[in-house]
Design a protein around this nucleic acid. Structure first.
Length: 602
DNA sequence: AAAAATAATG
């Protein structure tokens, strides 16, 4: 009984049916000591017995009970709510907040809001809760209605509401509306800036995000969350030098980031991994005074994406020894490590370990790794077997992995066609890659008629291949190149240098490998020429021209590197005695002295 | 009483 746990149990007996503020304060005091729903129910019963509904203060009391109840049992909150004799906005807000913060009843937040407006007038606290739920549910029209309502009530300049609006619009993919809200705000908090920067980062507008970051610094000192968003942008964009600048900034102002130590370190770790500086990432990791699961996961994923498979495994063992329990993401990292080295047996055994030892239910990502692992190792039948037995619908990426596996030599054409049909049938998928792959299947088998047919199909359907694009950072400036690009300021120099490279490579015995040239846009123009003009070649040539000897060339590419470019890059690294680090769509390649860390398996 | 807030297969 709750009374037994309080300091002065007798007080209650005397205090029965008093409506004094002291009595209410007392109940609030007991409430804060509640740890279970049964204790809470006792307080609730006691409150019902000893207080009468008379004013806002009583409602406040009930809202606290309601709030505490929602932490354990939202049904109970609803029940409590339905028994209230009258309500005010406070009570409604509490319930809406409870729904918005719940993990399974978020959709009711907006329904409650609907009901609320017919009973009482929402106040400025109502909207952040409603918008949070809308943001989570991508409920664009509902959120817009709430926005309209807020304007009608004259909350145009409320910082909290506007911040929520920015977040809501950006989560729903309406970056422009988010930006409009931000621009119109008469007053902005550090957080407003953080929300807007993060919105830009989440929408892939890295350059704008970074521009806004420098703008912000004229007004506010960045905090841990700013740094998080900015490092995230650096990681995605490959902006190593800015990332290092942020690192230096954090070290210089370390007192302001003391509370964010772990978060910032994890973000730095991730940033260095994704910007190709695995060695610095390892240093950050090793010097961390505190690590959490995320740190281990980021490190394992980092090793995996750099093809340091043994290190990834070692890291996994170490975390297990340190009694950090791996989660679903840890295994995504480990499986992708297996994937990058074609370690089918290890992959299978880690998958089983995950399911049986750690009782983690595999999700689409795990199946994606496994299918890709098998398909790339040429074990298409096994891969298909996994696909037909997995408990969820395969996504387009999984079908594409299968198809990709079919592109290997000795491809089974019938099987490939079957797979291709499935991909194209699977609605909503992005099909351009499928056509490219299928045409490659035919090309591999020298069935040029079909290959041509696919090509015609693509033209008819207006399907365009994603253009390959590579970027390189030189003195803090990013240079972007598309295949065959002639728009760069130093185009003439670059093309001249490409010839120099070619001459040198010929001396080293280079013969072009045309097998992966996609005929879709290259057959007519002569494959050889277009291979030479793949975007990464232009970027590498520019790097060789502009960077000082001894500085590694870092290239970011949006697609996977083709086998000919891979070969050429290896040769360049030897012929020009330079380290070249390429981040392609799926992983890093470190080229050094004529070989690559992917060991030619990618 | 209030907003956002790591990392994830290809």
């Amino acid at each position: 009984m709750i009374l037994a746990t309080t300091a002065r149990p007798t007080t209650y007996a005397i205090n029965t049916s008093t409506n004094t503020s002291e009595h209410r304060r007392h109940i609030l005091q007991i409430l804060t000591q509640c740890t279970s729903i049964s204790q809470l129910k006792q307080v609730h019963a006691y409150t019902l017995r000893t207080t009468t509904f008379d004013n806002t203060d009583t409602l406040f009391l009930y809202s606290r009970i309601l709030h505490f109840a929602s932490l354990h049992d939202l049904n109970y909150s609803f029940q409590l709510f339905s028994n209230l004799e009258n309500t005010n906005s406070f009570i409604w807000n509490t319930l809406i907040r409870a729904c918005a913060h719940s993990n399974n009843r978020k959709n009711e937040a907006f329904l409650l809001f609907y009901k609320m407006v017919t009973n009482v007038e929402p106040d400025k606290h109502t909207f952040p809760f409603v918008l949070k739920a809308c943001a989570y549910l991508f409920a664009l029209s509902e959120g817009k209605q709430a926005h309209g309502f807020a304007l009608k009530l004259g909350f145009d300049s409320d910082v909290y509401i506007n911040n929520s609006l920015i977040h809501f619009y950006s989560s729903c993919g309406c970056l422009k509306d988010a930006r409009r809200v931000f621009d119109k705000m008469p007053e902005r908090s550090l957080v407003s800036w953080n929300v807007m920067i993060d919105a830009l980062v989440q929408s892939g507008e890295f350059e704008s995000a970074l521009r806004m970051f420098s703008e912000m610094q004229k007004i506010f000192e960045p905090d841990g969350y700013t740094v998080q968003s900015v490092l995230d942008a650096c990681a995605s964009f490959g902006a190593l030098s800015l990332g290092m600048w942020v690192h230096a900034y954090v070290l210089r102002k370390y007192e302001s980031f003391l509370d964010f130590d772990l978060l910032v370190n994890n973000c730095l770790l991730n940033m260095y991994c994704k910007c190709g500086s695995l060695d610095i990432a390892v240093q950050v990791f090793e010097r961390m005074s505190k690590r959490d699961l995320n740190s281990w996961n980021a490190m394992i994923l980092g090793f995996a994406m750099h093809g340091e498979v043994e290190e990834a495994f070692r890291c996994f063992d170490e975390m297990v020894i340190k009694r950090v329990i791996p989660d679903s993401i840890t295994f995504v990292g480990i499986l992708s490590a297996c994937n990058h080295r074609g370690l089918v047996d290890e992959g299978r055994s880690y998958f089983d370990k995950m399911v049986f030892e750690y009782k983690i239910r595999p999700v689409l990502e795990h199946y994606g790794c496994l299918v890709d692992l098998l398909a790339r190792a040429g074990r298409i039948v096994e891969a298909l077997d996994v696909v037909s037995n997995m408990p969820m619908k395969p996504d387009a990426a999984i079908w594409r992995s299968l198809l990709d596996g079919c592109c290997k030599k000795n491809a089974d054409i019938e099987l490939s066609e079957e797979v291709a049909r499935k991909v194209i049938e699977s609605e909503g998928s992005d099909t351009s890659g499928v056509y490219v792959l299928l045409s490659r299947v035919y090309a591999t088998a020298n069935r040029w008629d079909e290959a041509g047919l696919i090509r015609k199909l693509m033209t008819d359907k207006g399907i365009k291949k994603d253009p390959g694009c590579s970027s390189i950072e030189i003195n803090g400036v990013f240079h972007e190149f598309f295949a065959g690009d002639t728009s760069h300021l130093h185009t003439r120099e670059i093309y001249k240098f490409l010839d120099v490279i070619e001459e040198r490579l010929k001396l080293a015995g280079y013969v072009p490998d045309l097998s992966q040239a996609s005929m879709v846009d290259e057959l007519d123009n002569g494959k050889r020429r277009s291979l030479k003009l793949h975007s990464e070649r232009l970027a590498i040539a520019y790097g060789l021209l502009k960077l000082k000897p001894g500085i590694p060339i870092r290239i970011f590419k949006n697609l996977r590197i083709c086998s000919d470019c891979h070969n050429v890059t290896k040769l360049i690294s030897k012929a020009f005695d330079v380290e070249i680090i390429v981040r392609d769509r799926v992983r890093f390649h470190h080229f050094r002295n004529g070989s690559c860390t992917c060991k030619d398996y990618w």
